[in-house]
Design a protein around this nucleic acid. Sequence first.
DNA 1: ATGGATGTCCATGCCGCCAGCATTGGCGG
Length: 629
Amino acid sequence: MSVNPLLAERFALIGKLIELLGEDQFRANAHAKAARIVGDMAEDLGAMVDAAGPGAKKKLTEIDGIGARTADKIIEFVTTGKIAELDELAARVPAGLVPLLDVPGLGPKTVSMLWNRGGVKDIADLKRIIADGSILQLPRMGAKGVEKIKASIALIEQGRDRLPLGLARPIADRIVELLRGVEGVTRVEAAGSLRRGKETIGDIDVLIAADSAAAAKRAGESFREMVGVTTVLAAGPSRSSVRMAIAPEVGRFEREGSEGDAYKGPSIQVDLRVIDAESWGAALMYFTGSKEHNVRLREDALKLGLTLNEYGLFPEDGEETPPQTRGVRPVAAATEAEVYAALGLALIPPEMREDRGEIDAFSAAARPGRKAREGEDRGSAFDASRLVSVESIRSELHAHTTASDGVLSIVELAEQAKARGFHSVAVTDHSRSSAIAGGLSPDRLRKHIDDIREAQERVNGIRILAGSEVDILADGTLDYEDELLARLDVVVASPHTALSQEASAATSRLLKAITHPLVHILGHPTGRLLNRRAGLSPDMPTLVAAAVESRTAMEINSHWLRLDLRDSHVRLCADHGALIAIDCDTHSPEDMDNLRFGVATARRGWTLAKNVVNTWDAAALNRWLTSKR
DNA sequence: ATGGATGTCCATGCCGCCAGCATTGGCGG
C-alpha cells in the first residue's frame, strides 16, 4: 500500500482542522494543496524517502508546492506512521465536526460557527438543533438555508461514494439524447468531471441552448419528468435539478417502490442549465472545469487585461459589477475555441483540463522554465490532434473466450472485433493458477492454440492472435514455462493474487514480468478495483523506466471498475515515452464499449497515439510482437 | 506554509450567486 493516499488524507485533514480552528487560511490552503499534489503523485513517497535516506528532505522540497515543513511531516509519517502536528490539532477539535464539512452547503466558517456558537460537536447535535428550531437563533441561519442543510444531511447519511464513470456515462448519454429530441433545443452537452473523463463523478451537469424561452421550458419539463427521477430539487427557467435513481444493473433505472422521497437507494444529482447561445463556449468551459484549470485561466486573462467568467471573456475595466450586466461586449464567448484563442491558447481537450501543466503546454508562445515534452519542440504548442482517440484504436489485445471465463467463442470474439473495425484481436485466456476463472493447464493451452489457428481458417478480414493472460505469481515468476509462452503470438502478464503485498515486493514482482523477454504487455498493473480494493503500489518510476527499456507496453485496462493504470500513472508513462496498450479485457461483447473509458484515461495522462500499440497498423503491430520472439 | 525576490520580507488562484441582513460573508465551481 502506497503511503501517498494516506498522506494525502492526513494533509487534507490538517488543512480542514486549521480552517475549523479559524487559524491561518494560508496554512490551511498550503496543506490542501500538498494533499492534492501527494495524492496525484505516481511515485510512492515511502519508497522515495527510504531510498533517499538523509537526502530525503532535499528531494522532497524539489517538488513544487512541498516546502521544508511539509517535507518534515512526510518523513515523520513515513518513519513513525504518525504526524504529531495532526494529533495536536485533532485534540483541539471534536472528531465529529470533520464529517460536517462534507455536507453540501456547509463550509468551514459555518461549521466553525455551529460549533462555537451552537455547541454542535457532530451530525447528531446538528440534527437536534434543526429539529427543535434553535438553529434559527444562530447568525446567518434562516429558514431557507436550514431546509437545504436538512436535505443535504439526509443525502449524506445514505453514505455514497462518487459514482464510477462507467455508471454515470450511460445515464448522461440517455439524458443528452432525450434533450436533443426536444424541439427548439439547439445545443446539448454534458459538462463537468464526466466530460473530463474522470474515473468517478460527483454529479452530472447538462447544458442546453434553445431558440426560444418556450423551447427551454419544454426541455426543462421533459428533463424533470424523465424515467428514474425520484426528486425534483429545483425547477426554474434557467436551471432544473433532480435526483435520479440508479438501479443495481449498469445504467438502468428502477422506479417500482421508489416513489418520491421514499427512495433510499443509490442516486445521483443531475443539473440542467439553460445557456444563451452567445455565451455557450464560456459556459461550457466554466461548467467543465476543473476548478483549478478555470482559476489558472482567469489569472492568465487578468495578465492580458481581460476578465473571464461563465458569460464570456471581457475587457477588464476596473468596474465592480459584472461586465455582462452592463452591456459590455465580450472579446470571445460563443465557442470554447475562440475563448482559448483569445487567451493565446489552442483548444485544450477536456480530459487535460486539470492544471497539471496543460496551460503552458498549449500556449502558442514559448514560456520560460518549461521542459520540452517528448515529441514536442520547445516553444511550440502541444498538438492535441496527436493524442490517442477512440477512432485511432485498431486492435484489442486482451480478451477472453469460453475457454476460460468469457462468454464468446473464438469465432464470435473475432466477429465482434471485426465489427468494431479492428484489424487484429488477441485471444488471451487465463493461465492455470486462475482456477476460479477457468485458467488453462499447459495441455489445454496447447490445444487452445490449435483451436485459435483453426478458427482463423474460418474467419476473414481480421487476424486472430494466439495469446494468454498469464498470471504473475507473487514472486514474479510466470504461470507457464518459457517454452510454452514462446509459442504464443502475444503474452499479457497480469497480477491477480497477493494484491496486498508490500510495495517493494510488488515492484520486484512486476519488474520481473516487464523485463521477461517473452512478455509484451503488463496487464492491469496494480490490480486495483475502484472504491473496493487499493491494489498493489509498486514504485512506478522504476517500472516505467524498465518498460521503456524493454519496449514492454503498460496496459490501461478500460473496464470502468479497473481503469488500471490510472491517469497519474499514465502521465508518467507519457512523460517517458513508454508504450501503452489500451485494452477492454473483453469477457462479453458489451465490454468493448468500455474502450472510451480507457481512452479517456489515456488522454488524461497526455498519451500520444503513436505510443499506443493498439493504434498501430497490422504490420507495425506484428513487427513489435515478433521482436519479442 | 510556500515560493519568489532578496538576502528577510511579502503576497498568497478568480468570479458569480445566494441568503441573510441591510451591504457582506460564505460557498461552489
